[in-house]
Design a protein around this nucleic acid. Structure first.
Length: 224
DNA sequence: AATTGGCCCAACCGCCTAGGA
DNA sequence: TTCCTAGGCGGTTGGGCCAAT
């Protein structure tokens, strides 16, 4: 089943979006809400594939999207989370209010990846090199369970003590565990939330593969 | 003024997973 | 259980912009 994900008998428009197309898409989303992307081109009267519509909305038209250069705190946060979870751009973006996965990915590829290794992060005294973590323990969980979605939800909305909140939609915090994890240079059980949910609990929530559990253990043992 | 090369970012592509029939 | 479709993700590309020559 190797066919284009946007395959159709019609010839669909590609390339840059026009102002008219943006308006049509925006009106459609405002009227019907997000989701059901396969219906969006029809509803909006757009000659675009569902994926193109979704991407345009998520990366450009959605409200609260922050444009312009990344702030220092945003970059710092990005580096920390990336060190933790690797190239999981959507997850990283979920922790940075107003930024999209594409933004984060583009920034990383142009500003961070191209930097000399030492400059990527200045390791603090006694910290292991980031290289080791990335090459050996970089997690690549492809299975995102429903429990993980819950955690992702936390990650998305719990901006907590990291950076000034953009207060996206007023969803209340449920846990501080992940916030503490990424906001602190060192990770320990002391950082776990009030429910006593430690990394083990988080591991089970995340439904991580074994290698990732090893990574979490390393994090727990003060290697990040 | 024209050309070139690098940077940046919007958009596309291919793949994977979840869920329903 | 298998197949198919939709949603979603990360990697990559192409084109616009701008500074340097």
């Amino acid at each position: 089943m190797k066919q284009s994900t946007c395959n159709t008998s019609l010839v669909l428009r590609k390339g840059a979006w026009t102002v008219q197309e943006d308006m049509l898409l925006k009106n459609c989303i405002q009227k019907h809400g997000e989701g059901k992307w396969h219906l969006v081109p029809l509803r909006a009267g757009l000659n675009r594939c569902r994926k193109s519509c979704r991407l345009r909305w998520l990366n450009y038209l959605r409200p609260n999207i922050k444009k312009g250069a990344f702030g220092e705190d945003e970059v710092d946060l990005m580096l920390r989370i990336h060190r933790l979870i690797g190239n999981r751009w959507s997850l990283i973006a979920g922790r940075i209010p107003g930024r999209t996965a594409n933004d984060v990915k583009n920034y990383w590829n142009t500003h961070v990846r191209s930097r000399p290794k030492q400059q990527k992060e200045e390791p603090k005294d006694g910290e292991p090199s980031q290289h080791t973590m990335a090459t050996i323990y970089k997690p690549q969980p492809r299975t995102i369970s429903k429990t993980f979605n819950f955690c992702q939800h936390i990650m998305t909305y719990d901006t907590g003590n990291l950076i000034a909140s953009s207060s996206n939609d007023g969803v209340n915090n449920r846990s501080n565990s992940f916030t503490s994890l990424v906001s602190s240079p060192t990770v320990s059980n002391d950082k776990m939330n009030d429910d006593g949910e430690g990394l083990d609990g988080l591991n089970s929530m995340l439904d991580l593969p074994v290698d990732d559990v090893v990574m979490w253990d390393l994090l727990e043992s003060n290697q990040l």
